[in-house]
Amino acid sequence: MRRDFILAGVILGLALLIGWRAPVFLTLATLDDIATDTAILAMMALAQMLVILTRGIDLSVAAMLAFCGMAAALVGQALPELPVGLLLILGPAVGLGLGAINGAFVAWLNVPPIVVTLASMSLYRGATFLLSGGLWVSSHDMPAAFREFPTERLFGLTHLVWLALLAVLLAYGVLRYSRFGRSIYTYGGNPSAARYVGIASKRVLFSVYAISGAVAGLCGALWVGRYGIAFTDAAQGFELQIIAACVIGGVSIAGGIGTVLGCLLGVIFLGIIGNALPIMAISPFWQMLIFGAVILAAVTINRQKGRAAKIILRPKTAEGG
């Protein structure tokens, strides 16, 4: 909990610092932009956190996003009369299938997650190319409603932000109060112990990858609609940003440790940096460098915390913090 306060403090300090240099940053309009821009990252990072909590990693999320976005865009292009709701359901439905393939390999074939998702990352990216024939689907080929949905407003906030908030609530509720969520922490904390207490480990593992796929699929449809373009290389390298958000937020790559709040703070931190650079007229080339330095700093700082948590051991892990 203490490190969440520190991170929140750093975020606030950073925001004030940027606001002092460029006052436009602290206006509601900019904050609205940042929220809308980071909504997809937030949903993806929460799903990734579920996977990392089980000692796994899902490197294929950006490729799944591209594939599902392309699938939704192509269907939208072919059947323009289709209601937008169906297109938005198509994304996660396809993603669920892709994620289930990952999950089956990890859970039932015992293949290490990093190998499975490394392979499926190139597989799904290539499948996107084959699906589209290497062509782009641009905004005027998509139904208008599909393009407008992500940034349409409901009670002042964009749909993207509402969906991200919903994802946060859902993740919080599931991880804290559901048997499935507690199983994730237990499995990540100690897989052998999880087996002894009768947790259906394989089903838990399979589920987190399937969920990761479904969320990536939903984000794919939203991404394509929002940016008005579907192409093979969409969101290339996004997986690293997603994992970085988790790590910065204190999610331990060793599994079993991480909270929704921490993950969200990691997302906000990256979102602020990403949005502040153009406002402060700093070349976007700096973004990668800064992200790298931040990841290294975060993982070094988390180390001490991790050790402390290990000493008090069980109760800490059980709280998930």
Partner: peptide, 17 residues
């Protein structure tokens, strides 16, 4: 895995800058 994702970003970032 985390450290080298960090340095991946850092080294490539320095080159880009």
């Amino acid at each position: 895995i985390v450290v080298t994702i960090g340095t991946l970003s850092l080294f490539r970032g320095i080159t880009a800058v």
